[in-house]
Each structure stands twice: as C-alpha cells, then as structure tokens.
Design a protein around this nucleic acid. Structure first.
Lengths: 124, 124
DNA sequence: AAACAAAATGCAAATAAATCTCAATTTTTC
DNA sequence: GAAAAATTGAGATTTATTTGCATTTTGTTT
C-alpha cells in the first residue's frame, strides 16, 4: 500500500480520536492541516483501512457511519441526548449464541444500543 | 387516524409478508393493485405504522430499511448469499446486560447479524 | 346530504451519505 | 530519471428517504 500524506493524516486523525468520528468530521478536521484534501479521499482511505483490519467501521442505523480505532471486540451505545457514541463490552460475545438459536453461520454482528449516557442522565 | 385505501393496502402487504420487505418492495407489490400509489405514501405510512407500534422498522446497516409485522422481541440475521433476512430470538434480551456493563440507560437496541443461512450453507 | 375542517395523497424536488469517474498528480519500481 | 502503478481532487452520480405543496379524500357538523 502506497504511503501518501493524506492517508497518513487520515489514519492519525482516527488514532487520536476518541469520539468515534464520522467521515465528514474527520474530513473537517484534516482539512485544517491539508486544505486540498477531498472528502472522497477520506472515504476511500477509511474503507481501505477498515478492510485491512486497521480500523473498524461502525455502521450506524440511519445515520452516518463512524470509525473506531479500537479493534478489540466491543459494541456501541448511541446517546440520544448528546449524540455521542460510547463503547461497551458484553461479558461474552454473541456469535456462538446467535448461531445456536438461529442455526446459521454468523460472520459478524452489529449491535448498537440507543439510550441515554450517564452524563446526560445527571443533567435531567 | 383516517383510514384510506392506500394505508389499508400497505398494512395488509406487510402483514401478509414473511420476507421483511423494504419500502420499495412493498411499493412494487401494491402498485399492481393500485397503480396510482406513490412511493412517498408508502414511506409515510410505514413510518406512521411503525411509530404507532403496529409494525417494526428494521434499520439495516448500509442497506434499505426493512419492515416487520412481528412485534415480539427478536433480532435479525442477514444472509450474505441470498440476501434474505431471518428472525432469531436470544435466550434473554440484552437491555439489562448492556445497562450493567455500560452504566447507561438503554431504550432499545439494534442487533443485526451477518452470515450464511442454512439453505445457502447446504448449497456450498 | 351540503359544507367545512382536517388529514392524506401524488408528484416532483430536495436531502444526505457514500461511491464512482476520470484526468491529473504522486509514488514506487526498474 | 523514465515508465508503470497507485492515489488524488473535483464533481457527477447513485440510492434511500424525506419534504413541500397543490389537490383530493375523509371525517365532522349541521
């Protein structure tokens, strides 16, 4: 894989993030350092990095995808109040259980919870 | 809620379905009986029915939403071979567990597994 | 059942996210 | 440093869904 300035910046931007940014958020951030970069390049590189197993694409239901540098098994919770995305880890992964109850072969699963984060709960 | 011919047809079409159809699939089907119906009406009514708790909208990651008449707690598996969507039910719902490990208040969750259904496995 | 208000419809245009096309540029290879 | 390979930027395109609005349909009132 060829190394370009833009790929470097994109990778760094995710690695430094802890907000599960969208492609556009990353684009806006990187733009400050490299104003000529295009959104298409951001998308392209994010997809490359994801399919190379460097980062993870979080396919959010009916909202823009987000990207995560954390590659250990975990799932996500979207706070309906503040819009932030948080990580959580179930005591045991669901693959096996899903295979048992469905009789199908599970390659991966996507689990997104919606609710209210602890910060936002305090504010009520 | 006013009763119209189109709402009736839309509701019936889902209730009779067992393929977790998309809005467009329903549109194409209903069109045969009522050629003047518009896709916007289908979307509008599906959303109404869903927010009234009559049907359930399945927000699929990066593909068109699907609709389900089954209102009991269950999740979905998408077969990557045939594209069909299947139901499965975990031995216990995840809300509690997610709340425990995340410390947040869970309103709902969206769990979609991707894999290969038993029919398609036989064909390999 | 005529008249009025409220709700729903169809159509076209708008939106939003993501991908694609392709000429120009950059990076690697030889 | 020339040729080949990969990547980029910019804009057009695609797909799913929503919205605006004039028109029609439905429900309500008398």
């Amino acid at each position: 894989m060829i190394r370009t300035k833009q790929r470097e910046l994109i990778k760094n931007a995710i690695m430094e993030s802890n907000t599960h940014p969208t492609a556009d958020e990353l684009f806006q951030k990187i733009r400050i350092q490299l104003p000529t970069i295009s959104l298409a390049t951001v998308y392209r590189n994010l997809n490359m990095l994801a399919s190379d197993g460097i980062i993870r694409k979080i396919e959010m239901p009916d909202m823009p995808d987000r990207f995560d540098w954390r590659m250990t098994v975990h799932d996500h919770l979207y706070c309906e109040k503040c819009g932030k995305v948080f990580d959580f880890t179930l005591s045991n992964a669901l693959d096996k259980q899903i295979e048992e109850v469905s009789g199908m072969q599970v390659k991966q699963y996507n689990l997104i919870a919606k609710g209210i984060c602890s910060d936002c709960m305090k504010k009520l």
